[in-house]
Computed example of a mutant assay.
Amino acid sequence: MKVSYLTLLILQINSAIDSGKHDSITIDDIHKAIEKRSLLRYLNSQCSSEMDLSLHLRDDSDAFENFYEEAIYNIYGGYAGRESKKWGIRNKGLCLTLAWTNEIIQQIAGDTALKN
């Protein structure tokens, strides 16, 4: 998996947070999208003016979309409801998305370190 796809996604999410236009996206909204395994498509529909997810949602990049949705779902399964304790996130769904996307990178880095 290209980590660059994940870091680009973090930049896109950060831009959407910075705009302040999407502060109404709640943690519950993010949970619902994750449960449907459609978080990227939800973000694309809600934040398209600040986020360009065309690279992440291309037909030929289904592998990334599938990877991301599964990885974020696994984090959700282990940590939903404990966002405040583990990541300090209490209010904004996009902040949670940013933290959990970063967590995916940390997990990849951990796996790589274990193999070396």
Rank of each mutant, 00 (worst) to 15 (best):
S4Q: 08
Q107R: 14
N116Y: 00
D29F: 01
I75T: 03
D60M: 02
T101Q: 12
Y68W: 07
L55N: 09
D62K: 06
I34N: 03
L6D: 04
G110W: 04
L39W: 06
D62E: 04
G20C: 10
Y42N: 05
L114I: 06
E35G: 05
K86M: 12
A63K: 07
S45Y: 08
Y79D: 02
N102P: 01
G81A: 04
N116M: 00
Q46A: 12
A80L: 00
K86D: 11
S49M: 11
K21L: 13
T7C: 04
A99P: 01
D60E: 13
N66Q: 11
S84Q: 11
N66R: 11
E35P: 02
S54V: 05
L98R: 14
Y68N: 05
K32C: 06
E69K: 03
R37L: 09
S54Q: 08
S38W: 02
S48C: 06
L53N: 06
G81Y: 07
F67Y: 11
Q106A: 12
T7F: 04
S45F: 09
Q107F: 02
L8E: 14
R90T: 15
F67V: 01
I34A: 05
A113G: 01
L8D: 15
Y5D: 12
S38R: 14
S19I: 01
W100T: 13
L96R: 08
A80E: 01
L94I: 07
G20T: 10
N91M: 09
D59N: 07
Y42T: 06
I17P: 03
D52S: 03
G110Y: 05
C47L: 00
Q12N: 11
F64S: 03
